[in-house]
C-alpha cells in the first residue's frame, strides 16, 4: 500500500489545485479529448480461449501486492452503528470473487452451444474501464481518476471509502477495505470508511511501456491490449470468425474492455452477487447528465432573452 498522506499535505495540495482552478489558466488548456495519438487502450478478452487456470489472478495479486491495504486493528468505532465494517485483511487468499485484495477473478459460466453441446466457460472478470466511468466522474472528492490512456483507478491516498463508486458502477466492481486511508486522519467516527479498491490495469507497468500483469501471465493469450480502434476491429473480426458475440462495445456508453464469446451473453448462466459482476446489457448511466448539459447552455440565454424582453416593454411604457 502507498504511504499514508498527511492531512496537511492533502489540504495543501487540494487548495493549491483549487487555486489553479480559480485562476482558470490551466483548466481550459488541460481539458482535452482523446485524440488519435492518445487513443484509449482497450483489452480484448477472447472467452473461448480461457481455460480458467487463474494464472492471471495470481499475477494480478503479485503485481499489485504493494498497493494492498495493511489496516491496523482494532478499527475505530464508526457512527451510526449501521455503517458496515468491511474487512478482507484476514481473507486475502479469496480468489472466487472480487475483493480489496483480489481485483480479478475467474467467473464460471455454463451455456449451451448452437449445436446443443453443454459447455463451461471461464471468464476473467475485473473492472471494465468505462469510456465515461461513473465511478470517476461521480466521485465527490476526485479520489477516482481517469487517465489519458483510458484506464480508471482509485487513489488510495485520497479515497475516503464512501463506496459511492461501487453504487454508481453498473457492475459493482470497487470493493472496500475498512481501517485504512485518509479517513483515519480526518473524522474516522463520522465520515469515511476505508478505501475502495479495484483493477487499475497495472498503470505502473503501462507507464513503463509494459503490459498489465494479467495479460503477460496468460499462457493462452486470452487477452490482447491495444488502441481502441484496432481492438474494436479485432473484436469484430474475431466475433465474425467464431460466429460469436461482443460485450462491452456499447455497455454503459462503451467500455475499454471488450469480451468476445461463442455463445450469447444473455444465455450464460453464472453466479452473481457481491463481488461477482453480471454480464447484462447496461444503458449509458451518464447519458442523462450529458443531455442536461445542453439545458445549461440554453437556460442562461433564455433568462437573458426574458430580461431583454422585459426591458423592451418598459421602454415602450416610458415612451
Amino acid at each position: 500500500m502507498s504511504s499514508p498522506i498527511s492531512r496537511r499535505h492533502f489540504l495543501k495540495t487540494s487548495f493549491f489545485a483549487a487555486g489553479t482552478a480559480i485562476a482558470g489558466t490551466s483548466t481550459a488548456k488541460a481539458a482535452s479529448t482523446f485524440d488519435a495519438d492518445k487513443e484509449p487502450l482497450v483489452t480484448l478478452i477472447d472467452i473461448s480461449r480461457c481455460i480458467g487456470c487463474e494464472e492471471c489472478v495470481y499475477a494480478c495479486q503479485d503485481a499489485n501486492a504493494h498497493k494492498f491495504a495493511d489496516p491496523k486493528k482494532p478499527f475505530p468505532k464508526m457512527y451510526p452503528d449501521r455503517v458496515p465494517v468491511e474487512d478482507w485483511s484476514d481473507r486475502r487468499n479469496v480468489t472466487d470473487r472480487l475483493t480489496p485484495y483480489n481485483w480479478l477473478y475467474i467467473q464460471y459460466a455454463s451455456a449451451t452451444t448452437k449445436e446443443g453441446e453443454k459447455i463451461t466457460l471461464t471468464i476473467p472478470r475485473r473492472c471494465m474501464h468505462c469510456q465515461n466511468p461513473p465511478c470517476v466522474k461521480l466521485c465527490p472528492w476526485g479520489a477516482a481518476k481517469q487517465e489519458k490512456n483510458g484506464l480508471s483507478r482509485i487513489d488510495s491516498q485520497i479515497c475516503l471509502g464512501g463506496s459511492k463508486c461501487k453504487k454508481a458502477c453498473p457492475w459493482d466492481i470497487p470493493q472496500r477495505q475498512t481501517g485504512t486511508g485518509l479517513y483515519l486522519d480526518l473524522l474516522p467516527a463520522f465520515a469515511g470508511n476505508g478505501v475502495m479498491y479495484k483493477c487499475d490495469r497495472c498503470y505502473q507497468k503501462i507507464e513503463k511501456g509494459e503490459q498489465p500483469a494479467c495479460i503477460e501471465a496468460c499462457p493462452e493469450d486470452v487477452q490482447t491490449i491495444g488502441k481502441r480502434s484496432d481492438i474494436i476491429k479485432k473484436a469484430k473480426d474475431l466475433a465474425k470468425e467464431m460466429d460469436g458475440y461482443i460485450y462491452g462495445l456499447d455497455e454503459n456508453g462503451g467500455t475499454n474492455t471488450i469480451y468476445v464469446s461463442p455463445v450469447p451473453f444473455d444465455q450464460l448462466v453464472y453466479d452473481t452477487g457481491e463481488g461477482k459482476p453480471h454480464m447484462h446489457p447496461v444503458e449509458d448511466t451518464m447519458a442523462a447528465g450529458s443531455n442536461l448539459a445542453i439545458a445549461m447552455v440554453i437556460a442562461p440565454i433564455a433568462g437573458a432573452a426574458a430580461a431583454v424582453g422585459k426591458y423592451y416593454r418598459q421602454m415602450k411604457e416610458e415612451a
Binding site: 489545485a17 482552478a21 482535452s32 465515461n132 445549461m296
Partner: peptide, 27 residues
C-alpha cells in the same frame, strides 16, 4: 463557473488533470 467546468469534465472523452478535478470539487 466551477460547476460548468465540472459538467464539461463529466462528458465522455473529456480529460482533466487529477489535481484540477480535486480543486474543482473542493472549491
Amino acid at each position: 463557473l466551477t460547476g460548468c467546468f465540472m459538467v464539461v469534465k463529466n462528458l465522455s472523452g473529456i480529460y482533466f488533470p487529477h489535481g484540477v478535478v480535486i480543486g474543482l470539487d473542493l472549491l
